[in-house]
């Protein structure tokens, strides 16, 4: 049994009367790829924000490699090894593609030249190296998603958290990003993926956690989870009702 890299322990978040996240727990070991799915409004984004530090939990703890990071700011968490992307893409629009990645790379490489070299390596990884010199503001949505993954990777993170990284992409682009994540995972990177798209989760076919009404509903392999009647009801039943 490997010691968990990221451990979420009974995390809850209350907004006034609403319990947005209710006592969620799970562990991740290094090198894993875990997906968190759930219908709209299930609390996925709130959970994500609790992990990245946009929000502090009402109860419970987020532990990274044995250190409780529940009360740390997003930038402290990034320094300790949490890389992330945003659901609504957040690129640095006035900087070039390589400069966007350099901003991440500076965390571990102080010199300008070294950071640039590291950034270029990462751009090769995500297939954006031929776009290095253009302004990030002019990229397509799918390119911006990959740029965000690159900026997160440049931090040399222990865990990369992807927040609905497929949102707004067409099927071909989704395929490209899924391949990218698969490849990076194969190279040993640890991923926690928040995803709404069930097809994507099936493609990843790794451990899946289903969130429903703020709480963990089931956990298992993609196949197990997607054939679980409770999950089908959470997704399909809702759709019928609506």
């Amino acid at each position: 049994m490997t010691a968990p890299l990221l451990s979420v322990r009974g995390v809850s978040k209350r907004f006034g009367g609403l319990l947005a996240v209710n006592d969620v727990s799970f562990d991740m070991v290094p090198g894993e790829l875990v997906s968190i799915i759930g219908p709209n409004g299930a609390g996925k984004t709130t959970l994500f924000n609790l992990l990245t530090g946009q929000l502090a939990p009402t109860a419970g703890a987020v532990v990274l490699d044995g250190h409780d990071i529940s009360r740390l700011s997003p930038n402290r968490r990034a320094r300790l090894g949490l890389g992330r992307t945003f659901q609504i893409s957040q690129t640095l629009t006035s900087l070039t593609v390589i400069e966007n990645v350099m901003v991440g790379a500076f965390l571990h490489r102080r010199g300008l030249r070294r950071a640039a070299e590291r950034a270029e390596e990462v751009l090769h990884l995500v297939g954006l190296h031929d776009r290095a010199a253009i302004r990030a503001g002019t990229l397509t949505l799918s390119e911006r998603r990959r740029l965000e993954v690159a900026r997160a990777l440049a931090l040399e993170p222990r865990v990369v958290l992807l927040d609905e990284v497929m949102a707004g992409l067409n099927p071909t682009e989704v395929g490209e990003v899924v391949d990218l994540v698969e490849r990076l995972h194969g190279e040993g990177h640890t991923f926690l993926v928040i995803e709404h798209n069930l097809k994507v989760v099936r493609r990843f076919a790794r451990r899946v956690i289903v969130i429903e009404r703020g709480a963990k509903l089931v956990e298992g392999t993609a196949e197990e989870v997607l054939s679980d009647p409770r999950v089908v009801e959470a997704y399909v039943g809702r759709k019928r009702a609506a």
Partner: peptide, 23 residues
């Protein structure tokens, strides 16, 4: 032409993204 210069521009462009980059 330094890390600080890039960090300043990152903060100008998007504070949230800057924080996510550990700034």
């Amino acid at each position: 032409r330094s890390r600080l210069g890039y960090y300043l521009q990152a903060v100008r462009d998007n504070e949230q993204a800057a924080r996510a980059a550990g700034i």
